[in-house]
Design a protein around this nucleic acid. Structure first.
Length: 925
RNA sequence: GCCCUGGUGGUGGAAUCGGUAGACACGCAGGACUUAAAAUCCUGUUGCCAUUGCGGCAGUGCGGGUUCAAGUCCCGCCCGGGGUACCA
């Protein structure tokens, strides 16, 4: 056996150890070990048909390093993997082929699992979850039930069971209530008792955290479905890039707005990248200001507006309503009616995309009506324009053209008057939106600074009873309905039109089989086709399904207790693991997934199901690894290709060619000729004797022939080399192109490492002898660096430091067993297979995955001499070598001698001598 | 536009608290071994000047500043990447 292993045979070593780990359940997490828990999580993948390319495992390897490191540090580590299995690609596949999306998904999962196992990741595979598994989505539905049966008490700032609300209604109505609700009317206990069941249910719906609401939604005709704001990019669907328009539909919503403030404030207590936090802050979009009312002249109506600048109230010169605003038709004058209606139609028919592409084109129409200024009673013309959004604030604004750029543009376009009220020291001939300045022209606000004026204005507004201080959010309640097949069915049955929960004990509500996966086109889900499923003795089932992010908003909790049939996660298990200590994934999930997961966690926390109110304590966003495509330049209208640096002499077209035919940008001509028929007789214009290809960095995709799979890299170099190289490439957070050629470096490193154990002749050179002090010094210098590197998550420098360590030990001809043993433990998080093998060669029969990590001992580093650089006038001139215990004065003396010899002093006294704790001497002459 | 990031050799990158800039690796050049190639090993590799010898000067996107000392801190710009967008 050992003779066979005398050569570094990674194929055998890696296969053996992967088998060993599997057979011994090495990485199964154990809640009863008595150790400190540590939870390391990857964002679970959506298993696409294309499988993994070399970019995907970057984060998985990094988290595996962290997981393995913590096992060595004595933690009980939970490191699971699973699949986000519901999703649009599988649905599209089902529509196109008629096959069930589930079996397609399972095939893909099979492939993913195989590829992941090849990388030697230390997952606890016994905890694998799949969101499309009925035993999993049973609990997704259960959480929906809890949301449906909860309301948000804003007084206590906590979600509570709906029964508490109902008993509140029975005792005092909604008069004393401070709840997050869309219900604006008040009722007493007596009135509540008098309402019939239907009415009561309708009112309750306005309080539930999962509620049915009518709303304008993003409707995508091509996909036949509604999309969340998060799924729309620039007016096009994120998937597919189809146009999206506004459409009114009854939909399920989650009342995430109730949590807006906590989601914002609690960002301060988690260790996330600043960029990600900032994205969430912007997404939540809190703004503080005031809501105030303007009377409409000759109408018994008031227009409510929201403003963040109540201080500029005396600068208001007109009003603008959104075209969809409810008052538009009731206040419009007869003469303006026609053009107003025309404009509303125009605004309605414009897709979001048109509207955005057209920001500079200012449009709007006068309604013929006037509002009255609450302080001066001045007449303010009321306009409508689509720059005012119906669903933000109140859908109406008080226009202050002097101090708001959009109002200014509008005023200029339609020649409305402009009144300046803030003096920021700038000429009064353009828009001044600075929030620093002194108020003038503003009655009781005159002379105040903006910040103070805001407060005084709000107080005055309150006193006059025309408004209140108010906070607004950009965040909207989350649309939770999709008209798709491949998602979680709602646990909802409509009894006489009243939505009712399917009792928890009847969950899961499983997906039925259907004859076609196509949406009906009228907005009804494909589930409506399963008539026998839809119609139950208790009523009619909801046919929408939940969105893709439902299952991924809580999967990290299921890993703690994945096989529990009684509860989504037992309280004991949850209490043990707490929340995720270390979470790694792509930044594309900064808003949708991470925000909704935080929301669900907080909700479950409020209701006492979990003990932490944030799901992910530390977050790292790994960068993307892009492809590096190769290009060949063909001279137009010929079959002749020209080498990259000569291409400017010709008119050429760049063609993507398969990167497997290119080595170091040099094209292998025969492979290219054999690649495709049409290139069989191609001619080449060479540079010297080579044909050089151009390149482009872009997404890895079959389309560009630039995909590199882990499979091919691992079979050629081994997975330890692959893992080391992925970590070596650069900081985890940054994106960079994949270049296979660089992997030779880590491959050589592993061979050198092997050379510490076996000579080139295959002889075991390990010796069991006392450690030499020089080797101890090298080792402990390494331990210090490596531990620091992992602790600050600088995995690329960590790999570099392994290389230095092994280089130094090799140069020192160190073959001491105890040193090599410690080296194996140090390396084990990065290159676990070869480390295990070395550990075994050192005579251990048990694996090393939980062997304590070596501890740095500074005693080994004491040096007898220290080299100091010495600067004169800030320039390093020379180095002096002194005894380690020489002291600062001796260093100074010696430095001065050298300076004298070098004539830098020229007989003068030095002006200043700086000795920094035995490090550097700088002498100013 | 606004917010967040980043800018260091031919390339990926290192420099952790303001203290020898370019660690480590790729690539390249030269050499050794070889009939030859591959593999391996050795040497050199920021630029310019000097290389018989020490070396010298410049240098971290640009322009200023603070400091004995700046890639790192401060002020003003330029450029790239990501997010967001009529949010009142």
């Amino acid at each position: 056996m050992q003779k066979l292993m005398s050569e570094y045979n990674f194929k055998e070593i890696e296969a053996n150890w992967q088998k060993y780990w599997e057979e011994n359940s090495t990485f199964q997490a154990d809640e009863n070990s008595g150790k400190q828990p540590y939870y390391v999580l990857d964002m679970f993948p959506y298993p696409s048909g294309a499988g993994l390319h070399v970019g995907h495992p970057l984060g998985y390897i990094a988290s595996d390093v962290i997981a393995r490191f913590h096992r060595h540090k004595g933690y009980e580590v939970l490191h699971p993997m699973g699949y986000d299995a519901f999703g649009l690609p599988a649905e599209q596949y089902a529509i196109e082929t008629g096959n069930h999306p589930g079996s397609f998904t399972d095939q893909n999962i099979e492939r993913y699992r195989k590829q992941l196992k090849m990388i030697g990741l230390s997952y606890d595979w016994s905890r694998e979850v799949k969101t499309s598994d009925p035993q999993y989505y049973k609990w997704t539905q259960w959480i929906f039930n809890q949301l449906f049966d909860s309301w948000y008490d804003e007084k206590a700032n906590v979600a509570k069971p709906i029964e508490i609300l109902i008993s509140e209604f029975h005792s005092t109505g909604n008069l004393n209530l401070q709840a997050n609700t869309s219900y604006s009317e008040s009722f007493t206990a007596i009135q509540w008792e008098e309402y019939d069941n239907n009415t009561q249910q309708k009112i309750l719906m306005h309080y539930r955290l999962a509620y049915l609401g009518v709303s304008e939604v993003n409707w995508c005709e091509e996909l036949g479905t509604v999309l969340a704001n998060e799924e729309v990019k620039d007016g096009l669907s994120e998937r597919g890039g189809y146009p999206v328009i506004k459409k009114e539909m009854t939909q399920w919503f989650l009342r995430i707005l109730a949590y807006a403030d906590r989601l914002l404030v609690d960002l301060n207590k988690i260790d996330w990248p600043e960029a990600t936090k900032e994205m969430q802050r912007n997404w939540i979009g809190k703004s503080q200001g005031a809501e105030l009312q303007f009377e409409v002249e000759n109408h018994n109506q008031r227009i409510k507006v929201f403003t963040t600048r109540p201080d500029t109230i005396f600068g208001v010169t007109f009003m603008v309503l959104a075209p969809e605003h409810e008052l538009v038709l009731s206040i419009v004058s007869d003469s303006q009616k026609e053009s107003v209606i025309e404009y509303t139609q125009y605004a309605r028919n414009r897709s979001q995309r048109d509207r955005m592409a057209d920001v500079k084109n200012i449009t709007g129409v006068f309604t013929g009506a006037y509002a009255l200024h609450p302080y001066t009673s001045e007449r303010l013309p009321i306009w409508i324009s689509d720059y005012v959004l119906a669903d933000y604030g109140t859908g109406a604004v008080m226009a202050v053209p002097a101090h708001d750029t959009r109002d200014y543009g509008f005023a200029k376009q339609f020649q409305l008057s402009i009144t300046y009220v803030v003096d920021a020291g700038l000429p009064l001939d353009s828009c001044i939106d600075s929030k620093a300045g002194t108020l003038f022209n503003s009655d009781f606000l005159n002379g105040l600074q903006v910040a103070d004026a805001v407060k005084v204005a709000i107080n005055s507004i309150k006193e006059k009873n025309i408004g209140i201080g108010k906070v607004n959010y950009k965040l909207r309640d989350a649309n939770f309905s999709r008209q798709r097949y491949w998602g979680e069915p709602f646990p909802i049955v409509y009894q006489n039109g009243v939505p009712t929960l399917v009792d928890t004990k009847y969950l899961p509500v499983s997906l039925p089989n259907v004859d076609s996966y196509l949406p009906s086109g009228t907005g009804e889900s494909p589930l409506a086709r399963a008539e026998s499923w839809v119609n139950t003795p208790n009523g009619v089932r909801e046919t929408d399904t939940m969105p893709g992010w439902a299952g991924s908003s809580w999967y990290f909790l299921r890993y703690m207790d994945p096989h529990n049939e009684e509860v989504f996660c037992s309280p004991e298990r949850e209490a043990y693991w707490g929340n995720v200590d270390f979470y790694i994934g792509g930044s594309e999930h900064a808003t949708v997934h991470l925000l909704f997961a935080r929301f669900w966690q907080k909700f479950l926390f409020d209701r006492g199901f979990v003990t932490k109110d944030e799901p992910f304590q530390k977050l790292i966003n790994q960068g993307m690894i892009q492809g590096r495509s190769s290009l060949a330049y063909r001279i137009n209208k010929t079959n002749t290709f020209v080498s990259a640096n000569l291409k400017d002499n010709y008119e050429t077209t760049a063609l993507h060619i398969d990167i497997s035919m290119v080595d170091n940008d040099v094209l292998h001509l025969d492979s290219f000729r054999n690649w495709r028929k049409e290139y069989k007789d191609s001619e080449f214009i060479l540079e010297g004797d080579k044909f050089i290809c151009g390149y482009e960095v872009e997404k890895m995709s079959k389309r560009w022939y630039n995909v590199v799979t882990p499979d091919e890299v691992i079979s050629k170099y081994g997975c330890d080399a692959f893992r080391l190289y992925e970590m070596f490439l650069g900081p985890i957070e940054s994106s960079k192109p994949w270049e296979t050629k660089g992997i030779d470096g880590v491959s050589r490193f592993l061979k050198k490492l092997w050379g510490l154990i076996y000579s080139t002749e295959g002889k075991l050179v390990l010796v069991d002898e006392p450690e030499k002090p020089e080797d101890q010094k090298i080792l402990h210098k390494g331990i210090k660096k490596l531990t620091d590197d992992i602790n600050r998550f600088s995995l690329n420098t960590c790999v570099s430091n392994y290389m230095i360590l092994v280089n130094e030990l090799t140069a020192n001809s160190c073959h001491t067993k105890s040193i090599i043993e410690q080296l194996a433990i140090l390396l084990s998080p990065f290159a676990p297979h070869v480390s295990e093998e070395i550990w075994k060669i050192c005579g251990h029969t048990q694996g090393l995955s939980t062997i304590p990590y070596p501890v740095f001992n500074p005693d080994f580093l004491i040096e007898s001499e220290i080299e100091y650089p010495v600067s004169v006038n800030g320039k390093t001139r020379f180095k002096i070598v002194v005894a380690a215990d020489a002291g600062a004065d001796a260093v100074k003396q010696m430095a001065l001698q050298h300076i004298e010899m070098g004539k830098w002093l020229a007989g003068k006294e030095p002006k200043k001598i700086i000795v920094v704790t035995g490090r550097i001497v700088n002498v100013v002459v």
